[in-house]
Design a protein around this nucleic acid. Structure first.
Length: 522
RNA sequence: GCGCCCGUAGCUCAGGGGAUAGAGCGUGUGCCUCCGGAGCACAAGGUCGCAGGUUCGAAUCCUGCCGGGCGCGCCA
């Protein structure tokens, strides 16, 4: 894992001492103590080393502490606590250095963590155009797009693609439903019944392009920009050629791919038997599609799928193998489903009946910012219950506003500051709230790197709330502008403006990574 | 039956081997002659589903069980 420069500088003497004792390199040694009273940073290396060395932990801790004293990053000697924890207190100079470093990095702060840049395709949403996007697709989009943003920020070249089925039985039912409306009839029983069907019926021709246009507009409003679109019918013409090249066999009149040879849990049918129509399956299109994706030059293919598709994971991994790639080149991100609630009761919904909650309705009810934040703030492994009426009522309590308020507040300060100098040089005796905020901001590169690596953008929202918490506390305890508060010295004003600038920039980045705007006023 | 995900404060959730388990919302009590009160401070609130195991140390890793969600088609 990458580490920001100031943290590395802090860890260096400790790593050197620990590695010396262990006789081998030691890494990942610093962590935040559970209680700020105990110090700014802490380490458990002494506990880990004690066993290896066969010596009492406190004795090892003692030796580490001695070899670290004198480091300029530290204020005083490390303190030994409990069974052998080492608690460190950073110096004011270190805080100023860290802040200066952060401001120097500017908008790139925390970015570029990718060890090597890859061409990555993220396939997301990919809902069939039989109706407007639902909140279920919205979670796919909010999650997938945030992962894409994280990857871009890490330095990868990312393309977002939307795949849809424009043929097949579902689409025929959809078209038949629109046709029925045009004739003034009710759509068939197994057709689609939402109000949008009547809308589409007003315009002649294939309703699919109109539906796709509405979907694209909704996604744009949701701040997801699709780079490319792929449709199933254009893949199908290439199926026969692909089937020739893959390792297949015939059984029960159907053509199967031996995907178990690449780790799949079962072989899959590519071409149905004659008595079932003899047509290619969805999986056959998958095979063509994945080959094309690799041929387009992507190093990594990311599929964002709902938990109802998790049985599909071994298939896609196996398919990558069948394409002659490492199975890791196809990465499947599974998120848990969104359940709709109505006044606390689970609501059974049917897309065909048209009684779903639309993404458009969610955005109307709570706004784009709250909607995106809400759908990404929980871990993707967590199911979400959503009650739109309740969500609308509570939107003012959404933590996104608490975080955005920090941006608005810092903007207000700079509007008042009349261009006063921003100076990241420490004045004597920083306050606790100032030190806490510096330390929080210094964590950012590690937080982003881990969120990216684990495909967990919700970690960004959790971190942003903590930054907001630390900032509001700082703001409340320390006045910034000398113009309003005579007791503030020019050095304090400079340092505090630097803190405001750094906070503003980190918050703006956090919000951007999850597709939320950074308002200058609220 | 098999597979994947979840079970942590009243509610919604963080926490990927470390100290006294955290946040938001909700509840209670205090804070504005001053840079934005969409804020701050304090308080109440917990058998981390249950039982074993690994470890100096487990909410976290392993096994079993209980409870909830989702899968396991020549559907798309």
């Amino acid at each position: 894992m990458s580490r920001s420069r100031p943290l590395a500088a802090l860890a260096e003497p400790l790593v050197a001492a620990a590695s010396g004792l262990a006789g081998a390199p030691v890494d990942g040694v610093l962590e935040r103590p559970s209680d700020a009273e105990r110090g700014d940073d802490a380490t458990t290396v002494a506990l880990q080393l004690a066993k290896k060395l066969g010596r009492p932990p406190r004795e090892v801790a003692e030796e580490l502490a001695t070899s670290m004293s004198g480091s300029e990053a530290l204020a005083g000697a490390p303190e030994i606590a409990g069974p052998g924890f080492l608690n460190l207190r950073v110096s004011d100079d270190w805080c100023a250095d860290a802040l200066a470093d952060l401001l120097d990095a500017g908008v790139d702060y925390g970015g570029g963590s990718a060890p090597k840049a890859e061409r990555v395709q993220v396939e997301l949403v990919s809902a069939n155009p039989t109706g407007p996007l639902t909140v279920g697709s919205a979670r796919n989009g909010a999650y997938g797009d945030s992962v894409a943003r994280l990857l871009e920020f890490a330095g990868h070249d990312v393309e977002r693609e939307y795949y849809y089925n424009d043929a097949g039985s579902q689409m025929e039912r959809f078209r038949a439903s629109v046709e029925a409306r045009r004739r003034g009839e009710e759509p068939p029983e197994d057709g689609y019944h939402g109000e949008y069907i009547a809308e589409l019926a007003k315009v002649d021709g294939d309703p699919v392009p109109g539906m796709l246009e509405r979907i694209e507009n909704t996604l744009e409003r949701f701040r997801i920009s699709i780079d490319s679109w792929e449709r199933q019918s254009s893949l199908e013409v290439e199926i026969p050629a692909i089937v020739e090249e893959l390792e297949t066999y015939e059984a029960d009149g159907a053509v199967w791919i031996r995907s178990t040879a690449f780790g799949d849990e079962k072989d899959r049918v590519l071409i149905r038997s004659q008595d079932r129509g003899g047509l290619p399956t969805y999986e056959a299109a998958d095979a063509v599609y994945m080959r094309k994706k690799f041929a387009r030059g992507f190093d990594r293919l990311i599929y964002v799928l709902g938990a109802d598709h998790h049985g599909y994971v071994p298939w896609l991994k196996a398919l990558a193998g069948a394409c002659g790639r490492d199975s890791d080149a196809a990465e499947v991100l599974i998120y848990q489903l969104v359940h709709l609630m109505e006044e606390g009761e689970a609501k059974r919904v049917s897309k065909r009946r048209g009684d779903v909650v639309l993404l458009e309705e969610l955005m109307d009810a709570v706004g784009v910012d709250a909607a995106r934040w809400y759908l990404v703030m929980r871990g993707h492994d967590q199911t979400i219950d959503i009650d739109v009426q309740l969500a609308a009522e509570r939107s003012s309590a959404n933590p996104v506003h608490y975080v955005q308020y920090v941006h608005a507040r810092t903007s207000a300060i700079f509007r008042e500051a009349d261009g006063a100098p921003v100076m990241a040089s420490a004045y004597a005796d920083l306050g606790d709230a100032e030190r806490d905020l510096v330390k929080r901001l210094v964590e950012f590169p590690d937080v982003v790197a881990e969120a990216t690596e684990r495909r967990g953008p919700h970690a960004i929202t959790v971190y942003a709330v903590r930054v907001a918490d630390d900032f509001h506390r700082f703001y409340h305890h320390h006045k910034v502008l000398q113009k309003h508060f005579e007791a503030v010295t020019p050095e304090q004003q400079g340092f505090r403006l630097a803190l405001c600038r750094a906070t503003q920039s980190v918050i703006a980045r956090c919000l951007d990574l999850v597709g939320v705007e950074s308002p200058d006023r609220m």
